[in-house]
């Protein structure tokens, strides 16, 4: 079994502090995840996600604030529409849509962050490495 490389784009207002809370609370979570802080989950474009896969990520997590909590009011609404469309584009072009996941994680949900990351790592581990897929 290989160790998948996972990139998590976490918004600076909710999900990044959520990840921080997991850390300061000493909650163990999968070391496969590399967190990249972004201003808003709505900033994570399809281009960025595709490039992340192309650079060898086996899975991409997009983490944003729950509805109603977005610092930019509805930045996360864009994410909520964009990600499912990109998942279908991946699926129809031959990349498993499970490699891309969107979750809402608030600043107080450290445990949830750890749970999401662990579960996602398990899911991605079942799939072949991206480098092999992209050849």
């Amino acid at each position: 079994m290989y160790e998948p490389k996972i990139i998590a784009y976490a918004c600076t207002y909710c999900s990044y502090p959520g990840a921080d809370l997991a850390g300061t609370s000493r909650i163990k979570y999968s070391p496969n995840v590399n967190i990249i802080r972004v201003l808003c989950s709505g900033r994570v474009s399809a281009e960025l996600i595709l490039r992340t896969f192309r650079e060898g990520a086996d899975g991409v997590l997009v983490l944003g604030c729950h509805f109603g909590d977005c610092h930019f009011i509805n930045g996360n609404h864009r994410t909520a529409k964009r990600v499912p469309i990109l998942q279908r584009i991946l699926e129809f072009s031959g990349i498993e849509p499970e490699r891309l996941r969107l979750e809402w994680i608030s600043a107080s949900e450290g445990e949830r962050f750890a749970h999401v990351v662990d579960e996602f790592t398990d899911t991605v581990q079942q799939l072949p490495p991206m480098r092999q897929v992209l050849g």
Binding site: A46, E47, F53, R54, I85, I89, L90, S93, L134
Partner: peptide, 29 residues
């Protein structure tokens, strides 16, 4: 966006997968 160096590098033919064609699919959705 298909002419942005960051997403679709200049001088690479065919464009690497997944980039050009899936970006175009996203933008025409």
């Amino acid at each position: 966006t298909l002419e942005e160096e960051l997403w679709v590098e200049r001088g690479r033919v065919p464009p690497p997968f997944p980039s050009f064609h899936l970006i175009r699919a996203m933008h025409t959705a």
